[in-house]
Simulated scan of single mutants.
Amino acid sequence: MYPNHSPRLLRRRLLRTLFALPLGLACAAHGPALAAQDWPAKPITLIVPYPAGGNSDTIARLVAENLRKQLGTDIIVENKGGAGATIGARAAASAAPDGYTLLLAPTAVMAITPHLRTVPYKPSEFAPVANVSGSYGIVAARKDLPANTMDELVELAKSQPGKLTFGSAGPATATHLAGVMVARAAGIDLMHVPYKGSIEALNDLLGGQIDLIFDPVALSQVKAGKLKALASSSQRRNPELPDVSTLKELGYDVDTRSWFGLFVPAGTPEPVIDKIATGLEAALAQPEITDVMLKFSQFPQFQGPEAFARRIADDDAFFKRLITDEGIKVE
């Protein structure tokens, strides 16, 4: 080997090789970290699996604007609605796991819909980044309903089982399951009337065609005096309705488990996920975020990747049991 090289030159070559080995191993080991340092190098797409104009879209645009300031790159909101959010979810799951495609999704996409019908994605195809917000749910009644409190509603419902109606954004949506949970906790029988969306249900409640909805969309009409709020179905009182007690305060053990979360395709490098989560935490800490979210019955509720993953697993098991126990089906 190297017959024309001196022993001193051979020793130099050997030392260079030995020193290069750990350096090469170190570079390989820190590859993802180096990639995260260079990320983001181009605009990010944030997919919303619903049409423009709803709560999902509003939250996504709020997140995009404030996360852009933290990450230093443009975030483009892309609405891919249809098929109960499954089209947008499939598009996000199919994207490259490089941190340049995000998905904003509610509880239903990850913990409810997959238990009800075949969907073109698997929750395991996503990695949780962070919980973004929680919802101030409202038990809202038509103005002339002869019940002004939850106890009076329960008494009225028990006097005419199955006669009182509640509307929802559709079968097995969070607003449907919220009504099921409240009815079960109160020991009453309500008739479910599904709609194509929350606005349609709200309009029929205002028109007196139905009796109740369990939906934060009612907030503005409650404040306008056109509907009455019997309780908050979230775990805390809505600051916009400080005199309206939570169901838990009234003795009804109900947690509607309503949230919006941020996801990336599975396989996205952990340092990139952590960088997004850190940026989101800083964005959600801005006081103006709370003020804006409050206008549509939401509140910032940050949880990092690990805590949020545990929450999703718990909610998934909860809704699977609820759907099975209640025999809920989607035709």
Rank of each mutant, 00 (worst) to 15 (best):
D255P: 00
A172N: 01
N131W: 11
P51Y: 12
A157S: 12
R68D: 09
M191C: 03
D74V: 03
V129F: 14
I44P: 11
W259M: 13
G162A: 04
E281W: 00
G279K: 03
G267N: 11
V330P: 00
T268A: 10
T58K: 14
G251S: 03
P22G: 11
F263V: 00
L206V: 00
P32S: 08
Q235V: 14
A309V: 02
R16T: 09
D74W: 11
G88I: 02
D74I: 03
I276P: 05
T17Q: 08
Q209H: 15
A309H: 04
L153W: 07
T268S: 07
T149H: 06
D57A: 09
R61L: 02
M293T: 04
D314Y: 14
G82P: 11
G261W: 15
S133H: 07
G88L: 09
V154I: 13
I289C: 10
K223T: 02
A224T: 03
A277F: 05
L202H: 01
S133N: 14
G162F: 02
I188F: 04
T278E: 13
L10G: 09
G207I: 01
I276F: 06
R68F: 02
V63S: 09
P32Y: 14
S220C: 07
K196Y: 06
S198N: 06
A91D: 04
A285I: 02
P146N: 09
L103D: 12
K248R: 15
I328D: 02
E331D: 15
S258T: 04
E288L: 09
D253K: 10
K226L: 05
V154R: 07
P242Q: 11
G82Y: 08
A309T: 10
I312Q: 06
L250D: 05
